Measured scan of single mutants.
Amino acid sequence: MIVFVRFNSSHGFPVEVDSDTSIFQLKEVVAKRQGVPADQLRVIFAGKELRNDWTVQNCDLDQQSIVHIVQRPWRKGQEMNATGGDDPRNAAGGCEREPQSLTRVDLSSSVLPGDSVGLAVILHTDSRKDSPPAGSPAGRSIYNSFYVYCKGPCQRVQPGKLRVQCSTCRQATLTLTQGPSCWDDVLIPNRMSGECQSPHCPGTSAEFFFKCGAHPTSDKETSVALHLIATNSRNITCITCTDVRSPVLVFQCNSRHVICLDCFHLYCVTRLNDRQFVHDPQLGYSLPCVAGCPNSLIKELHHFRILGEEQYNRYQQYGAEECVLQMGGVLCPRPGCGAGLLPEPDQRKVTCEGGNGLGCGFAFCRECKEAYHEGECSAVFEASGTTTQAYRVDERAAEQARWEAASKETIKKTTKPCPRCHVPVEKNGGCMHMKCPQPQCRLEWCWNCGCEWNRVCMGDHWFDV
């Protein structure tokens, strides 16, 4: 396979590697080409510095992935760790964990309700045991953590790749202090920090972006993250068709209702045909949960890209028209025109101005929308079919299609509260000796007794199943 190397943020060049090629071997190839010592090179990928003893497969490097290699003399205490030698983080029983690669970060837990604080980093599902597709590297999971809308060759929703760059020099040479644990960490600028490894760059702020994971991409090709779309790892039924499908869209209502993408497309087109989208002054033209839940309008309007190009163009047109109407304007009634106009409040005669090729020149009556006339309008008909009709959803289907309910059931079956801080902690095999993952707590306690870890627990039921 081919990976592209950008040395000291210059133009990239291809390097041929195998899945079992080590990072140090990659350094040696680059060092020979650039005429520099291999031990002064640092390989940066997806916000993480890659260790010498890791392989291309370990690092989730795919065909035509772009890695950054910078030349920086080692500072005291760094060289041993980078070589894969006596790194205290690798000691058996050590409590410190390697910062998780962005290629394996899962933010789907952050669609849980606000009262489930902490689960994004504490609760991990076991539903990723799908067998890898044919042709994928051994052991590589097909679980997708992110979804994007690819405006490039795909023109559809695709699995996405999370990447990070330095907000100062805009190069992907920043190593994160810690990985993101929720969508806010990724979507809110300057929320996460790190250290830029580019020479002479003092940058410390992280800037995240997404790429389409279905095809090789260049540095400049980015895609918009659709953070309401998630892999259906909890096997929730769709609120409309009641099938279990994946991926799904999880509405931001209190129940976190789930809808499959085909039904979401149908829901949007139906509402669009009836012009029953909601115009929100802050958000724009949007839709609420299909069950009509309060405070559930979709905030990231790129989710409506699921409509496809033709329907999305209609959505944008109707949204612009609705904006004009909300501002007190009118639409030209001549067939084939429909231009938005903003006449004076007491102006009865409205002319669709033909300047700049935008208007048709038609003069019409503001009251009856017919060709302009003197005197009273002959008839004014009330528009028919403008009443909002509820999208029919079966109550039982709505009850079963809740992301929140599956989460709470998982928590109930696989977790116990920490005796000190009461945060839910998952036990997935292993011994009875637990350690609270909350940095402010870190209590060592017994899963069996529910009390602080002691010699009695150690001698009596340390390794009970």
Rank of each mutant, 00 (worst) to 15 (best):
C196S: 00
G12L: 04
V248I: 09
E404G: 08
H200E: 15
A214H: 07
P216I: 09
L119P: 15
T177M: 11
I122W: 11
P180V: 03
R140A: 11
I411L: 11
Q317S: 15
I259Q: 09
I44D: 00
G355N: 14
T242R: 11
C332Y: 02
F146Y: 12
L112N: 13
G93R: 12
A390H: 13
C260Q: 01
G357P: 08
N232S: 01
S145C: 09
S255M: 09
N81P: 14
D126N: 10
D219F: 07
V105G: 11
A320W: 08
Q25Y: 07
R140D: 12
S131G: 13
T231C: 09
Q158V: 08
R140P: 11
I298M: 06
L297P: 01
E16N: 07
R104T: 13
I44N: 02
T103A: 13
T387A: 11
F277N: 01
L261M: 08
G329N: 03
H124F: 04
T386H: 09
E207M: 06
H303Y: 06
A379K: 08
D243I: 08
G203E: 03
Q178M: 07
L228W: 04
N448I: 08
V56Y: 02
N81K: 12
C196Y: 02
Y391I: 07
D460Y: 05
Q311Y: 04
C337I: 03
L123S: 15
Q40N: 09
G355V: 11
G361C: 05
S296C: 00
C253P: 00
T125W: 05
I236P: 00
G12K: 07
R75L: 10
E322G: 03
V330R: 04
C166K: 00
G357L: 12
I411P: 08
V423Q: 13
T237Q: 14
Q282K: 13
A120K: 15
G340C: 06
I411D: 15
Q178E: 13
R170Y: 06
I122N: 15
N81G: 15
I66Q: 04
C201Y: 01
T240W: 09
C154W: 00
C150W: 01
V15F: 02
Y372V: 08
S108T: 10
K435M: 06
C95F: 14
S181Y: 04
G94C: 12
Y312R: 02
V186W: 01
C169Y: 01
S101K: 09
V67Y: 02
C196Q: 00
G77W: 13
